[in-house]
C-alpha cells in the first residue's frame, strides 16, 4: 500500500490563498492541513510531519516593509515554543530529508527573501521580487513557457501553462549579472512569461512586471523547491479560465493542477 502524501499549507498573518492551495493538493490526491503559523510556533503542528510544504499567496504583514520582508525575520528569529528552534531550522531539516516546497506569489517572495531560493548557499538572499514596472497591482492571466531542461519536478512534462498573476511586487531581479547567468545556465528558471508564440518576452502585458530574463518562477538545483509568481492553484476548475465560455469542449480540470499532480507523483515515487 502506498503512503498517503501529507501536505501542509501554512496560513496566518495575511496569507490568503490557503483554501484553494489545500484544495489543489487534495484534488491531486494528497491529504492537506491548513495550519496557522502560530500553531507551528506554539508546537502544536510540526513541519517535520509533512512531505509537501505549501507557502500560499497573500499579503504577509501587509507587505508593509516590502513583500515577505517581515516574514523572513519571523522565519529566522521567532522560536518554536516547544523546541526553541526557528522555522528556518525546521525548513532546512525538511529540505534535508528530500521533501518538496512550493511557494506561490507571496510564498515565492518568502522563498527568495529568506534565501531558500535559489538556495546557494541556503539562507542567502541573492534574488528578489520588487515593484512591477507599472507600479500597479494587477490581476491578469499570463501565458508561461516551461523550461524543458529545468530540474524542476513540478513542471515535468509541461510545455506551457496559462494561469493568472495577481501581484504588485513580482518583478524578478538578481543581485548581479552572474547570479542571473548561474540561474539560467543551471536551468533553474523553470518558468518564463511568454508571448502568443510561446517565446519568453519582456513586452508588457505578456510580461506583466518587467522581470529580468522574463523569469516567472525558479527552482533550486535539486528541482524540489519551486517558487513562482503566477497562481496555479487559481486554475483547478475549468470555469476558472477567463474565456471558458468560448470553448466548445471544456477540459476535465484546470491547467494549474499539473503542478500539484506532478508534486504528488514525485512524492509517490520517492516515499
Amino acid at each position: 500500500m502506498t503512503q498517503q502524501i501529507r501536505s501542509l499549507v501554512i496560513t496566518g498573518y495575511g496569507t490568503n490563498c490557503e483554501m484553494e492551495m489545500a484544495h489543489a493538493c487534495r484534488k491531486a490526491g494528497a491529504a492537506a492541513d491548513i495550519v496557522h503559523l502560530s500553531e507551528i510556533l506554539s508546537g502544536k503542528y510540526a513541519v517535520a510531519d509533512y512531505h509537501f510544504l505549501n507557502l500560499a499567496g497573500g499579503f504577509l504583514d501587509g507587505d508593509d516593509l516590502g513583500s515577505a520582508q517581515v516574514e523572513n525575520v519571523r522565519l529566522k528569529y521567532a522560536r518554536i515554543k516547544t523546541t526553541g528552534r526557528t522555522l528556518f531550522d525546521e525548513i532546512q531539516a525538511f529540505i534535508g530529508r528530500g521533501m518538496i516546497i512550493l511557494g506561490v506569489c507571496n510564498g515565492f517572495q518568502v522563498l527568495v527573501k529568506s534565501g531558500i531560493l535559489p538556495g546557494n548557499p541556503l539562507g542567502k538572499r541573492r534574488v528578489s521580487l520588487t515593484f512591477n514596472d507599472s507600479a500597479k497591482f494587477e490581476d491578469r492571466w499570463v501565458r508561461l513557457k516551461v523550461n524543458r531542461e529545468s530540474p524542476c519536478i513540478f513542471t515535468r512534462g509541461l510545455e506551457s501553462l496559462t494561469v493568472p498573476v495577481r501581484h504588485g511586487e513580482g518583478k524578478f531581479v538578481c543581485d548581479s549579472e552572474e547570479t542571473l547567468r548561474e540561474i539560467t545556465q543551471a536551468n533553474l528558471n523553470a518558468l518564463s512569461y511568454a508571448d502568443a508564440s510561446l517565446s519568453p518576452t519582456m513586452e508588457y502585458p505578456c510580461n506583466p512586471n518587467g522581470s529580468a530574463g522574463a523569469i516567472a518562477g525558479i527552482c533550486d538545483r535539486s528541482g524540489r523547491i519551486f517558487g513562482l509568481m503566477p497562481h496555479p492553484e487559481a486554475f483547478t476548475h475549468p470555469t476558472n479560465h477567463p474565456s471558458w465560455t468560448r470553448l466548445e469542449t471544456l477540459p476535465e480540470k484546470g491547467e494549474g493542477m499539473a503542478i500539484f499532480d506532478n508534486a504528488v507523483q514525485f512524492l509517490t515515487g520517492i516515499l
Partner: peptide, 22 residues
C-alpha cells in the same frame, strides 16, 4: 478592475472582464 484581485479563493466563474481578450 485589473488592480483588484477578482479571483482569490479560487472559485471565480464569471469575472468582471470577459471575452476573447479578457
Amino acid at each position: 478592475i485589473r488592480q483588484y484581485d477578482h479571483e482569490v479563493q479560487g472559485g471565480s466563474v464569471v469575472k468582471p472582464l470577459v471575452g476573447l481578450s479578457c
